[in-house]
């Protein structure tokens, strides 16, 4: 099993880079995972990552991208609740990539 080094602590990830153990997630883990994708996390990224973590906490699933987009729109406004904005932040797919940074499993229904 692969792993990433988070401040000297070994954190396991699966073959697609998602954390194996959700509660091993830290903000530093998110930074390391995003650095692997050559992405620097800004406040806008954190807004989405934190939203995903709250969604998971409440519903025990990572939302599908359609659901995420709608929910972000409702919570953070229409200028953020659209694919263009979210794909600009997370070029590999807002649900897939942001969930990985958030330490969540890949959204149900994503292939």
């Amino acid at each position: 099993m692969a792993s990433i080094d988070v401040n000297g602590k070994e954190v396991e990830v699966d073959e697609e880079g998602y954390l194996v153990n959700l509660n091993e997630w830290t903000e530093d883990a998110a930074k390391i995972l995003s650095a692997q994708d050559e992405l620097e996390l800004t406040d806008s990224h954190w807004e989405v990552i934190n939203f995903l973590r709250e969604y998971y906490e409440e519903y025990q699933i990572a939302p599908a991208v359609r659901v995420l987009t709608k929910a972000i729109g409702k919570k953070l406004g229409p200028e953020k609740g659209n694919s263009k904005y979210l794909y600009e932040l997370f070029p590999y797919g807002p649900a897939k990539q942001a969930c990985r940074f958030a330490g969540l499993p890949k959204p149900t229904g994503c292939v």
């Binding site: 409440e58 519903y59 025990q60 699933i61 939302p63 659901v67 929910a71």
Partner: peptide
Amino acid sequence: PTYNALGD
């Protein structure tokens, strides 16, 4: 809790 997400 996931049943609560069905509405979404």
